[in-house]
């Protein structure tokens, strides 16, 4: 437990020192999406009975919880390849579980902070959504998946450049195809089936349904938790590989 707290606390201290920069970074892209896609196009596009802005904000929440949780990989890599801080953790009498849990929780914390920023940014646009337990559970599950995946991949990459490639090939396509900007149901069945393989598709659906006050599919949450558990196990088994 002490190892987990130490790893998590270190990430929080780093976050504290970079808070202004981090908050600005968390706000830029959601604000651009809100202004361009939501505000400028919101009046001409209607999805079901909702305005596009109502549709977009839960999608942005899902996307940001993914990107911000995954960005912990960048911090781990900087600490590992440039600052060699990873060695300090490896030389300490803590278990791999403590290390992974601390880093995963740090990624999830960043994701939750980013969501609060988005919700605050959406206030001036006059959008009122439901922010109940299912909404927050969806964010927690989604950030758990991507934070765990980030830790696993950060342990396996051999350089910081490799990490950027993974972000380009995994996160960027998922951000656009995971039901964030358009309803997946409008696509052909084969495309829907393909996109249902992406965890973000389920996170977008769960978060959007709860935010719009519609009934949620329990299956989405179970699936996200299962994928998250798998990624967490993957991260645990990857730590030893980073030693050599």
């Amino acid at each position: 437990m002490h190892g987990f707290i130490a790893v998590y606390l270190r990430e929080l201290l780093i976050l504290k020192y970079r808070l202004k920069r981090q908050l600005a970074g968390m706000a830029v892209s959601p604000l651009l999406y809100l202004v361009t896609f939501g505000y400028a196009m919101g009046d001409v596009i209607q999805i079901g009975e909702q305005s596009y802005l109502h549709f977009l904000i839960p999608g942005l929440v899902a996307m940001s919880s993914m990107t911000q949780a995954f960005s912990i990989a960048t911090d781990i890599n900087v600490a590992r390849f440039y600052w060699n801080i990873f060695e300090e953790f490896q030389a300490a009498p803590i278990t791999n579980l403590s290390y992974v849990a601390g880093e995963v929780l740090a990624g999830m914390t960043r994701a939750l902070m980013a969501i609060v920023v988005i919700l605050l940014l959406s206030l001036p646009f006059g959008v009122v959504l439901h922010y109940g337990p299912w909404f927050w559970l969806g964010i927690v599950c989604n950030s758990f998946v991507f934070s765990s995946l980030a830790v696993a991949l950060a342990m396996l990459v051999k350089s910081h450049a490799d990490q950027s490639l993974l972000t380009n090939f995994i996160i960027t396509p998922m951000a656009f195809l995971g039901g964030t900007f358009f309803p997946v149901e409008k696509l052909p069945v084969w495309a829907q089936m393909l996109l249902s393989l992406l965890p973000l598709t389920h996170a977008s659906r769960a978060i959007r349904a709860s935010a719009l006050g519609e009934s949620v599919l329990w299956w989405d949450y179970v699936l996200l938790l299962s994928i998250g558990a798998l990624c967490f196990w993957f991260a645990l088994s990857s730590v030893n590989k980073a030693r050599d």
């Binding site: 606390l9 201290l13 780093i14 600052w83 060699n84 300090e88 300490a92």
Partner: peptide, 15 residues
């Protein structure tokens, strides 16, 4: 391999 963004005390405290 110190955390350059943290203070001397914080580095020792984390350890």
């Amino acid at each position: 391999n110190l955390d350059s963004e943290l203070s001397v005390y914080e580095n020792l405290d984390i350890h």
